[in-house]
Design a binder for these strands. Sequence first.
DNA 1: CTGGGGAAGGGGCCC
DNA 2: CGGGCCCCTTCCCCA
Length: 266
Amino acid sequence: MPRSFLVKKYFTSKKPNYSELESQNDPISAMVPERYPLAELPTKEDGSLVTTYTSALVWTTNALPLSFPPSSPTTPSSIAPLDLSSPSSSGEEDEGRTSDPPSPDPSDRFQCAHCGISCSSRAALSRHQLSHCSAGTNANLVENANMTDSTTTRAAFRCKHCPKEYNSLGALKMHIRSHTLPCVCTTCGKAFSRPWLLRGHIRTHTGERPFSCPHCNRAFADRSNLRAHLQTHSEVKKYQCGTCSRTFSRMSLLHKHTVSSCCPNA
DNA sequence: CTGGGGAAGGGGCCC
DNA sequence: CGGGCCCCTTCCCCA
């Protein structure tokens, strides 16, 4: 996912063993301990593949179905044909909603004089600039992280629980929630880092499925799962094998295909 | 073995 | 600054 969402890599087992957590008096400290000593920044293990796939994406938000849930962008019911020759097109149509850094805009008037980062508004710029000078006086920061006297102006906020670093206090605080898991399900006791993650989880208890497929009326509790499902209705899938040109509805399927069957060395 | 569904994690953006 | 939401990705499980 993480187009560099590497945090998960720090865990040896992908899904937390909640029953194990429940047996602990202190779920937080139970998670924090020596779980991360071996943590490293992403390696090429997946990184290279992810990058490759991402650059080959051709199915953009414009290809979403017409009757996508409320407030969603309208789209043609047919999927645009694959075009691996123009990987940048998907990024341009992303409307900045991906986690990829936005393309620098020469006309952007709100550019940080310290690091050159372009901000979308004056307020955003002011907020950003605070990250260059005010962090060290933040009591919470001192408590939760260590300032890194880096030679660069980025990655100045370091998590005290793991090796991750961020260039803003907000990003760090957000990350720390993944350690503290403040959102607990009152039904089963599972803990989550964000309220909306908890809400999504609660749907597994209530059976609520607010996202319906316009093609088969199948409903999903998660929009991303609906999006993946929509690919099954498309003849031309979003992810294409660079070797055999076979297409897949999910990157994970392409990955499995790449490493196991078609081109294990690709 | 493959494809698809379910559940979940996490960064970014907007308000 | 924090909450909410978006989107992407991953992993597990099952047909």
